Amino acid sequence: MSFTLFADSRLALAKDSLAGLSVGDALGGRFFVPGGRVAPWRDDLPPGPWEWSDDTEMAGSVVTVLADARQIDRDALASTFAARYDPARRYGAGAVELLELIRSGTPWPVAAASAFDGQGSLGNGAAMRVAPLGAYFADSTSRAAAEARASAEVTHAHPEGIAGAVAVAVAAALAARGRLDGSRPAAGRLLAGVAAAVDPATEVHRRVRRAADLLGRPLPQVVAALGNGSRVTAPDTVAFTLWVAATRLDDYPAAIQACVEAGGDVDTTAAIVGGVVAAYGGVGTPGGVPAEWLAAREPLPPWLP
């Protein structure tokens, strides 16, 4: 099915994805306990407000730039990241250093390329914030991939960091397209579509292909093969999150629960999964983001469009 999306429809899809991302981020973060461990899932969820982290703040900047420019303007995105970032939102040390450089006037290509002794970051930060972008470009996976690459390059010069962003954006685009078509994408087909869009020379690509081979396998086996974000890298995070999203695309609560049960970088894995699943299921609908979960999440910043 071919279709044309107008700007307001694109933004509505992106906002639903951002809602799912932010709820996953905020709820996932509530399961961290002292010592870097993750508490077991429980059905009686912790009371709100659930505070969101840097995942949501940076995703909000992506949505803001899309609302203004209808594409990723990398200079504008870098400026927005630097202007909006609040270190209290649990930014990693590398992200703080990079954003402080940009805030002080260092051009973003120089700042991004200087990370990790000139290798560039292969972290999961570009992937964690990009699902709303994919939903915005639901009518074109090639456009979603290109814009995701542009969004990643502002902070992640390493091919793996870029590949992670492309993978998540394409997954969200396919999910949102399925919503518009009225047809749930089959898990294998969704993962194949993602793999086709990702640089085949990357470990992210290899693990996404591996994720497709693990459909139907139990969660612990999948974590053992793909990771759970505990290394905070794109290869260790993205394929796992897309396996969860692909297999639980019509059940947002089950998808977030799987992230918590897997352990690791739970707020980020739940943010990625939440953004992709909400691109398909929406908010306050059967299988989408539960209204009571959205109400428990801390309000989003007033500067969002």
Results as ranks from 00 to 15, higher is better:
residue 154 V to M: 06
residue 154 V to W: 14
residue 155 T to S: 15
residue 155 T to K: 00
residue 155 T to R: 00
residue 156 H to D: 00
residue 156 H to S: 03
residue 157 A to N: 05
residue 158 H to T: 06
residue 158 H to N: 15
residue 159 P to G: 03
residue 159 P to M: 03
residue 161 G to Q: 08
residue 162 I to P: 13
residue 162 I to C: 02
residue 162 I to S: 03
residue 163 A to W: 13
residue 164 G to W: 05
residue 164 G to P: 04
residue 165 A to F: 01
residue 165 A to C: 09
residue 166 V to E: 12
residue 166 V to Y: 09
residue 166 V to M: 09
residue 166 V to Q: 05
residue 169 A to K: 00
residue 169 A to P: 11
residue 169 A to Y: 04
residue 170 V to F: 10
residue 170 V to L: 13
residue 171 A to D: 09
residue 172 A to I: 07
residue 173 A to D: 00
residue 176 A to H: 09
residue 176 A to I: 08
residue 177 R to G: 00
residue 177 R to Y: 14
residue 178 G to Y: 03
residue 179 R to H: 14
residue 180 L to Y: 01
residue 185 P to G: 02
residue 185 P to F: 03
residue 186 A to Q: 15
residue 186 A to C: 00
residue 186 A to F: 06
residue 187 A to G: 00
residue 189 R to G: 13
residue 189 R to D: 15
residue 189 R to E: 15
residue 190 L to E: 00
residue 192 A to L: 06
residue 193 G to C: 12
residue 193 G to E: 11
residue 194 V to D: 06
residue 196 A to P: 06
residue 196 A to K: 10
residue 196 A to Q: 11
residue 197 A to Y: 04
residue 199 D to E: 01
residue 201 A to E: 14
residue 201 A to P: 00
residue 202 T to A: 10
residue 204 V to D: 14
residue 205 H to S: 11
residue 205 H to D: 13
residue 205 H to L: 10
residue 206 R to E: 06
residue 207 R to I: 01
residue 207 R to Q: 10
residue 208 V to W: 13
residue 208 V to T: 02
residue 209 R to D: 14
residue 211 A to E: 01
residue 211 A to W: 14
residue 215 L to P: 00
residue 216 G to A: 14
residue 216 G to D: 10
residue 217 R to M: 09
residue 217 R to W: 15
residue 220 P to L: 07
residue 221 Q to N: 12
residue 221 Q to G: 06
residue 222 V to F: 01
residue 225 A to Q: 13
residue 225 A to R: 06
residue 227 G to Q: 06
residue 229 G to S: 05
residue 230 S to W: 12
residue 231 R to F: 14
residue 234 A to T: 07
residue 234 A to H: 03
residue 235 P to H: 05
residue 235 P to L: 11
residue 235 P to Q: 09
residue 236 D to H: 12
residue 236 D to Q: 06
residue 237 T to Y: 11
residue 237 T to I: 14
residue 238 V to E: 01
residue 240 F to R: 03
residue 240 F to K: 05
residue 242 L to R: 00
residue 242 L to H: 00
residue 243 W to Q: 08
residue 243 W to S: 03
residue 246 A to T: 04
residue 247 T to C: 08
residue 247 T to R: 03
residue 247 T to G: 11
residue 251 D to C: 12
residue 252 Y to N: 05
residue 253 P to E: 09
residue 254 A to G: 09
residue 254 A to I: 08
residue 254 A to E: 15
residue 255 A to I: 12
residue 255 A to P: 14
residue 256 I to S: 11
residue 258 A to W: 09
residue 258 A to P: 05
residue 259 C to E: 02
residue 259 C to N: 05
residue 259 C to L: 08
residue 260 V to T: 11
residue 262 A to D: 07
residue 262 A to C: 10
residue 263 G to H: 04
residue 264 G to D: 05
residue 265 D to H: 08
residue 265 D to T: 08
residue 266 V to T: 15
residue 267 D to I: 06
residue 267 D to A: 14
residue 267 D to L: 03
residue 268 T to V: 15
residue 269 T to F: 13
residue 269 T to A: 07
residue 270 A to Y: 12
residue 272 I to C: 07
residue 273 V to S: 04
residue 276 V to M: 08
residue 277 V to G: 01
residue 278 A to I: 07
residue 282 G to M: 06
residue 284 G to T: 04
residue 284 G to A: 07
residue 285 T to A: 15
residue 287 G to L: 12
residue 287 G to A: 10
residue 287 G to R: 05
residue 287 G to P: 00
